Deep mutational scan, measured.
Amino acid sequence: QLNAMAHQIQEMFPQVPYHLVLQDLQLTRSVEITTDNILEGRIQVP
């Protein structure tokens, strides 16, 4: 299920590496919260 959620987020934010999306999802278990984390700059994109 997390993989499906990660792919959904990757479609919206292809610039964010998959492993970072998955790592955040493991903590949040939420597409909405992880999306917010990306938008708020809480996930550092190399």
Rank of each mutant, 00 (worst) to 15 (best):
I9T: 02
L20M: 09
F13A: 01
E11I: 14
H19C: 13
V21Y: 02
Q23P: 01
S30I: 02
Y18H: 07
A4T: 09
N3F: 15
M12V: 07
T34Y: 00
T34P: 00
I33G: 07
I9C: 02
L39D: 02
D24I: 08
E40L: 13
V16D: 03
Q8N: 07
N37I: 02
T34S: 04
S30Y: 03
M12R: 13
P46F: 12
M5E: 05
R29D: 07
V16F: 11
Q15R: 10
Q23W: 11
Q15E: 12
P14T: 05
V31D: 03
V21D: 01
L27G: 06
F13E: 00
N37L: 00
Q8H: 10
M5I: 08
L27S: 10
M5S: 04
T35N: 04
L39H: 06
E40R: 15
V31M: 10
G41R: 06
V31Y: 08
Y18R: 08
V31Q: 07
P46E: 11
Q15G: 11
D24K: 01
E11W: 10
S30Q: 03
V31A: 08
P17N: 06
A4M: 12
Q23T: 08
T35M: 14
V31K: 09
H7T: 10
D36K: 15
L39P: 00
I43E: 00
P14K: 05
Q15P: 00
P17Y: 04
Q10I: 14
Q44V: 12
L27D: 08
M5F: 08
Q26W: 14
Q23S: 09
Q10H: 15
P46H: 10
Y18C: 08
E11T: 13
N3M: 15
A6Q: 03
Q1V: 13
D36H: 14
Q10C: 14
A4Y: 13
P14D: 04
T28K: 00
T34H: 02
N3W: 15
T35Y: 07
V16H: 04
R29A: 08
P14Q: 04
V16P: 04
V45F: 12
N37K: 06
Q23C: 09
R29F: 14
I43R: 02
H19E: 13
P14I: 03
Y18V: 08
L20H: 05
H7P: 02
I33H: 09
A4E: 12
T35Q: 07
Q8S: 09
S30D: 06
I9L: 10
N3T: 13
T35F: 07
M5D: 05
Q44I: 12
E11Q: 14
Q10N: 10
I43Q: 00
T34N: 00
D36P: 01
E11A: 14
P17E: 06
Q44F: 14
M12K: 12
V16L: 10
H7K: 15
L20P: 02
L22F: 09
I33C: 08
I9R: 01
G41F: 06
A6M: 07
L27Q: 11
N37H: 08
N3P: 08
A4R: 12
R42N: 05
T35H: 06
T35C: 12
L22R: 04
T34M: 02
T28P: 02
Q44T: 11
I9H: 00
D24A: 04
Q10D: 02
G41P: 01
V21I: 15
I43V: 09
P46S: 11
Q15N: 13
Q8M: 13
V45N: 10
H19F: 11
N3S: 14
L25I: 07
L25V: 05
E11R: 15
D24G: 02
M5V: 06
R42C: 06
I38Y: 03
H19N: 10
L22P: 00
I9E: 00
H19Q: 09
T35R: 13
Q1D: 14
L2I: 11
Q23L: 12
T34K: 00
Q8F: 13
A6C: 06
V21C: 06
L2E: 04
V16W: 08
I33K: 14
